[in-house]
Design a protein around this nucleic acid. Structure first.
Length: 88
DNA sequence: ACCATGACGGTCA
DNA sequence: TTGACCGCCATGG
């Protein structure tokens, strides 16, 4: 997962072996803070964090990596979506 | 073993 | 289009 790219919970779960373990991914993110949590968004390309929890921080970090947000604070996964867990 | 929590995902009304 | 519900996996009480 290179910088400037984002991945969905389901995508990560799928890469881990369980496409439906998105909840487990969430759990890991809560437990581990040494991960690129800011690059993880929901299937809609939007930040799932709530305002006041760190949502603004994540958006800032993403923009800092060159990721652009849409009109609804939405990220174009077709453009910034993480591709291919195998290799790059 | 059962219930509750978590930054989800998909379907249905 | 939006809101609500259920299903999903993993951990803690």
């Amino acid at each position: 997962m290179p910088a400037g790219r984002v991945a969905t919970y389901g995508q990560i779960a799928a890469a881990a072996g369980n496409p439906r373990a998105a909840r487990a991914v969430v759990w890991v993110l809560r437990r581990r803070d040494d991960l690129p949590w800011h690059r993880i968004v929901n299937v809609g390309g939007g930040v799932s964090l709530r305002a006041g929890d760190g949502r603004e921080r994540q958006c800032a970090l993403l923009e800092a990596e060159g990721i652009e947000f849409g009109a609804d604070e939405r990220i174009d996964l077709s453009r910034y979506g993480w591709v291919a867990p195998l290799g790059r």
